[in-house]
Amino acid sequence: MDEVELVEQVRRRWEQGVPPKVIARALGVRPSVVSPLVRRIAAEAAASRGLGRVLGCWVNCGWSVG
């Protein structure tokens, strides 16, 4: 299994909510290989989510006065 395939396998299982140790066992690799991949995938997922949708914005008439 090459690096790209490993990352995709880890990503698919992580998105299903499988813990890193179980992912490692299923793929036949050490948890120390899977853990950094899970962290990287989680960071990419968080970055792609952004801040979300703006639901409202309230400003009162004295907001800029001190």
Results as ranks from 00 to 15, higher is better:
Gly50Asn: 01
Trp58Tyr: 12
Ser64Thr: 12
Gln9Val: 02
Val22Gln: 15
Arg40Glu: 14
Gly66Thr: 11
Gly50Asp: 00
Gly50Ser: 02
Val18Arg: 01
Arg40Leu: 14
Gly17Leu: 04
Met1His: 06
Ala26Gly: 13
Ala42Thr: 14
Pro36Met: 12
Arg39Lys: 06
Pro20Asn: 14
Arg12Ala: 12
Val4Trp: 06
Pro31Gln: 06
Val33Ile: 14
Ala46Ser: 08
Gly28Leu: 06
Gly52Ala: 11
Leu37Cys: 01
Arg39Pro: 05
Leu55Thr: 09
Pro20Val: 15
Arg30His: 14
Ser35Tyr: 06
Val10Thr: 04
Gly62Cys: 10
Ile23Gln: 08
Ser48Lys: 12
Gly62Ser: 15
Leu51Phe: 11
Arg40Gln: 15
Arg40Gly: 06
Arg13Trp: 03
Glu5Phe: 08
Val4Asn: 11
Leu27Asn: 13
Ala24Ser: 02
Leu37Pro: 02
Arg13His: 11
Leu6Tyr: 00
Trp58Glu: 13
Gln16Val: 15
Arg13Tyr: 02
Trp58Asp: 11
Lys21Ala: 03
Val33Arg: 13
Glu8Lys: 12
Val38Thr: 09
Val7Gln: 12
Ala46Val: 09
Arg11Val: 01
Arg12Ser: 00
Cys61Lys: 12
Arg12His: 00
Val29His: 09
Trp63Cys: 10
Val59Pro: 08
Ala45Lys: 10
Gly17Lys: 14
Cys61Gly: 03
Val18Ile: 01
Ile41Pro: 05
Arg53Asp: 09
Ala46Ile: 10
Arg39Gly: 11
Trp14Ser: 04
Pro36Glu: 15
Ser48Met: 06
Arg49Leu: 08
Ile41Trp: 07
Val34Asp: 07
Pro36Trp: 08
Trp63Met: 07
Gly28Pro: 07
Leu27Val: 14
Gly50Met: 00
Arg49Pro: 03
Val33Ala: 05
Pro19Lys: 07
Val18Thr: 05
